[in-house]
Design a protein around this nucleic acid. Sequence first.
DNA 1: AAAACTTGTTAGTCATGTCTAACTTTTTTA
DNA 2: TAAAAAAGTTAGACATGACTAACAAGTTTT
Lengths: 227, 227
Amino acid sequence: MTNKFYSYKLTKSEEDYLKALFQLVVENEKVKIGNNQLAEYLKVSPASANNMIKKLKNKKLVISEKYGKLELTQDGKEIAVWLVRKHRLWETFLYKYMNFSWDEVHEVAEQLEHIKSAKLIDELDRFMDYPRKDPHGDLIPNEKGDYELVPKTTLSNLKTGQRCKLIAVNDSSVAFLKYVSEIGLALSSEIVVEEIKEFDKSIRIAFSNKTETVSKKFADNIFISVL
Amino acid sequence: MTNKFYSYKLTKSEEDYLKALFQLVVENEKVKIGNNQLAEYLKVSPASANNMIKKLKNKKLVISEKYGKLELTQDGKEIAVWLVRKHRLWETFLYKYMNFSWDEVHEVAEQLEHIKSAKLIDELDRFMDYPRKDPHGDLIPNEKGDYELVPKTTLSNLKTGQRCKLIAVNDSSVAFLKYVSEIGLALSSEIVVEEIKEFDKSIRIAFSNKTETVSKKFADNIFISVL
DNA sequence: AAAACTTGTTAGTCATGTCTAACTTTTTTA
DNA sequence: TAAAAAAGTTAGACATGACTAACAAGTTTT
């Protein structure tokens, strides 16, 4: 309750848009994020996104000029980080205590992140002994709102012969997460790039004594650190 | 997810109305619950309640004739019990693991009970080792939807000299719950009725080596079993 | 630089759920 | 039992947040 951001009294939708903007603008470090990209990301029409952006501009959480790129204000950014923190703490809780699998946590955490109670989040953090990473390998911002961006390279950026370690996955698609765990990849898996097919840039990778061929699209969503 | 009631795809509001109806019609065993009582309970206008009742009648969750009393169908009742189960499990979780006090649990549980995930509730139940009572002393319906009503007598029904044990409190007002814990009453407290004032039916009670005088309204919200 | 394409905006509609004000029906009470 | 009070209903307005369709502004392409 005694969280400065609750004075904004945002709706669930407004929160969704702020978090989406943060993930597009800040986490992906894209140069320019426009209205239509935001709409596509949130699976709404461009008109809906435009409409919401107006509201968030009135509330001084978003800045943009007409026909210009979208940006978050300092407050907008802080609220978004707070939402990311809540999302990741809930994911960790579901995974570690509620027996949820990798691919099940996201959907329920999307609901739980909108629960309004600063105390609940602080206590959840304490209860889990202040975890630093969520089940997908992403860093959890602390209670002061400090966030760190892991410089993320994707598997698709590697050359033949390189070795790497899986540090995170893009968690936005259940189908993708299912696929990842089905073929046996997990956090910290060591992967060797055996071959990159000229034709469609699909990649043959080796890990834990097996070999799999994955598409470029798949590899785009696997974040790794080069070994 | 694999809960039969999710096929109804109810909104948060629809769920609130169903739960309210259950608590008025079934738990309080009132003979007749009308539209305006429902409205008052939910703190909405009679028009709003009327509007929602129409929707729930279309969905075959509520039955009533024009100008007649309100009732839940079997499905309506089962959904409401499921909501009560979720609410009470979350209250228990907040109280036992998140260091929430008696008077803090209700508000947050009101939000948490709308989270859609049957798995989460089952796991939460398992995690807490299948608790039977919530922090206010109310019984938690099991996963099959069996619910038990504790025959509730209120403190205000006792005569001078009678002894009783506090088994539950009405959890609908934070101010009330705060008052209860401030004067030192808790679940299982033994109370003796020392005197009932003729003038306003206020009651002097003795418990844990102290004496307090409480109003009739207060005593109406304290549920006890006679010793 | 004009045409074509992409992106952003506006106008108008719809569903949900709230409200007030006015009206009708039922119940109470004098 | 007839008037008054209480309870229930309807009509119409509003806010939120989604949509489609049409249009305007920027960006490429040729």
